[in-house]
Design a protein around this nucleic acid. Structure first.
Length: 273
DNA sequence: CTGTTCTCCTGTGGGC
DNA sequence: TGCCCACAGGAGAACA
């Protein structure tokens, strides 16, 4: 399931093929994604160049002269670049192809269709999906002082707070579990119980696990395929996620699993307090 | 505003 | 080998 590192890896992977290229054709085979794809997308974006591609949270944002094409990979989505004369016949879940003037195409693949392909002609900071997002976890405005201040009134579990996009973006279930393990903090602690020094460690560990995953080229459970079509190989790096009943890699205590906010949560009772 | 539950969807894997 | 079904999950929407 693409988390921030996979999205960033995807952005970096496709950028050389699409930036400054003009869109020559758009093929929508399945418009029913999380939200329906606007039915005249072809008319809107054809003949426009992609000026840049950026990432905000887990959204990929293609800047065009008349607006923004926004994509979200949901939990099973992937983007892949193909040479137009070598692209295989579209598979079952290849929902969108965008063709470019340089002879390449960008293919959006998403079996579970939790992803999205959206057109927005307004100012980005006014987009309803973007305007309430918290800071990027790898940017300077996500820091110990900020986290300490935000958490001090929150009774909910710290893991839920970390996964709330209004607090900080891009920390999904896997990395919330991993960061809390490395920070030595139990996932069900009330957020307001975290001391300033714990917030400082947590910020650092969130940064570390995300940075390591980006550097590793993105993690992979079974759904993620990066733009070169290779599976990532980060999943064996998980210390707690998916490791229920396995010995902790630090102290060998069996990893526990519980449900917090309908989501699987993993932790070590010896390493986390 | 806070907290909780529901919802979209399909591939996977366990049980029999 | 095949069938059935619970489960997984990002995150907005709906509801209490």
């Amino acid at each position: 399931m693409p988390e921030l590192p996979e999205v960033e890896t995807t952005r970096a992977g496709i950028a050389p093929f699409v930036t400054q290229q003009t869109i020559t054709d758009v093929i929508v085979r399945q418009p029913k994604l999380r939200w329906p794809i606007v039915d005249n997308l072809h008319e809107i974006i054809s003949h426009q160049p992609v000026l840049s591609i950026q990432r905000r949270a887990k959204y990929l944002i293609f800047q065009l002269p008349t607006g923004y094409l926004m994509m979200h990979l949901g939990m099973s989505g992937s983007l892949r670049i193909w040479s137009q004369d070598q692209a295989p016949a579209p598979q079952k879940h290849d929902h969108v192809d965008i063709l470019f003037s340089n002879g390449f195409l960008l293919r959006f693949h998403d079996p579970r269709r939790f992803g999205a392909v959206l057109w927005f002609a307004g100012a980005l900071e006014h987009h309803p999906l973007l305007c309430h997002l918290g800071p990027e976890p790898l940017e300077a405005d996500f820091n110990a002082a900020y986290l300490t201040d935000k958490l001090k009134t929150q009774k909910r579990a710290i893991k839920l707070a970390l996964m709330d996009n209004k607090l900080v973006v891009g920390v999904g279930n896997i990395y919330a579990n991993e960061a809390l393990f490395h920070a030595g903090i139990l996932p069900d602690r009330p957020a307001l119980s975290l001391q300033p020094d714990e917030c400082e460690i947590l910020v650092e560990k969130i940064r570390q696990v995300l940075r390591a995953a980006i550097d590793a080229g993105g993690s992979s459970l079974r759904d993620f395929v990066n733009t070169r079509g290779e599976n990532g190989h980060f999943q064996q790096e998980h210390f707690v996620y998916g490791q229920a009943n396995q010995p902790c890699r630090i102290c060998h205590t069996p990893i526990q699993k519980t449900i917090i906010g309908q989501r699987s949560s993993f932790y070590c009772t010896h390493c986390q307090h």
